[in-house]
């Protein structure tokens, strides 16, 4: 499903002409199969988030090749990446990344709006999903009126609204208490089991990693071991 072949990445820091090159990832070779839950674990600064950002297309690898669903996405331009993300990915972020001026309903609806789906179809889909994640009664609430757990459910609903084959999650339980974390992990397992959605989860939490079929440990920008 997702394949990284010899992917390296380095950041350039400092003013132009006096730049310093900071290598972050070194020769990453990784394959995520369809329907898998893969956890990428490692200490802070190990390159976990950079790896996810490369898979998301937010940054480009300095070298190597990334293939998703058989398609080489390494050289896609910004517009092509946008279309690709909308068609293939759902995103769950640590800090939820909900738009504050939109209600829970509108936040979940946003990917459907971007895809150009009509309002009638949108309403049915959004309400169904909000019910599934258990926050239908908060549909007209703004993010600031919701708890962390409720916001993360909205975020999960938004990531699933277009029924993507892959969900990329960056520290999804990082801002949740243990009870909400448990609920979220149950939800991820259920979605994986029932819908066959592939999950790539970046985490430093062993409990989150425990629900994964596979955990990949990153150490100083290199794959350090498999659990």
């Amino acid at each position: 499903m997702i394949e990284l072949a010899g992917v390296s990445h380095q950041f350039r820091i400092g003013k132009r002409g006096k730049e310093r090159v900071v290598p972050v990832l070194h020769d990453i070779n990784l394959k995520v199969e369809k329907g898998e839950i893969v956890a990428v674990v490692g200490r802070s600064g190990s390159g976990k988030s950079t790896l996810l950002n490369l898979m998301s297309g937010y940054i480009r690898p300095s070298s190597g090749e990334i293939r998703v669903g058989g398609q080489n996405v390494t050289k896609l331009d910004e517009g092509e990446w946008a279309n690709f993300r909308l068609a293939n990915y759902g995103f769950i972020f640590q800090s939820f990344q909900l738009i504050g001026s939109m209600t829970a309903y509108e936040n979940v609806e946003l990917p459907l709006v971007l895809k150009g789906i009509g309002s009638g179809e949108r309403r049915a889909k959004v309400m169904k999903l909000l019910e599934q994640v258990g926050i239908a009664e908060f549909a007209n609430h703004y993010p600031s009126e919701l708890s962390g757990g409720q916001q993360q459910r909205v975020s999960v609903a938004r990531s699933l609204i277009l029924e993507p084959p892959i969900v990329l999650a960056d520290e999804p339980s990082g801002s949740l208490d243990s009870e909400n974390e448990k609920t979220l992990l149950t939800m991820i397992r259920q979605l994986n089991h029932e819908l066959g959605i592939t999950f790539v989860i970046i985490t430093h939490d062993e409990q989150v990693a425990s629900i994964a079929h596979r955990a990949i440990r990153l150490q100083d920008g290199r794959i350090g071991g498999l659990a």
Binding site: S56, Y58, E78, G79, A82, N83, F84, R85, L86, A87, Y89, F91, Q97, L98, I99, G100, S101, L110, P111, L114, R158
Partner: peptide, 15 residues
């Protein structure tokens, strides 16, 4: 930030 979120989930730059 809103623009960033929209781009992150797949909003095309032309949109």
């Amino acid at each position: 930030q809103d623009i960033g979120i929209m781009k992150a989930i797949g909003a095309h730059p032309s949109v």
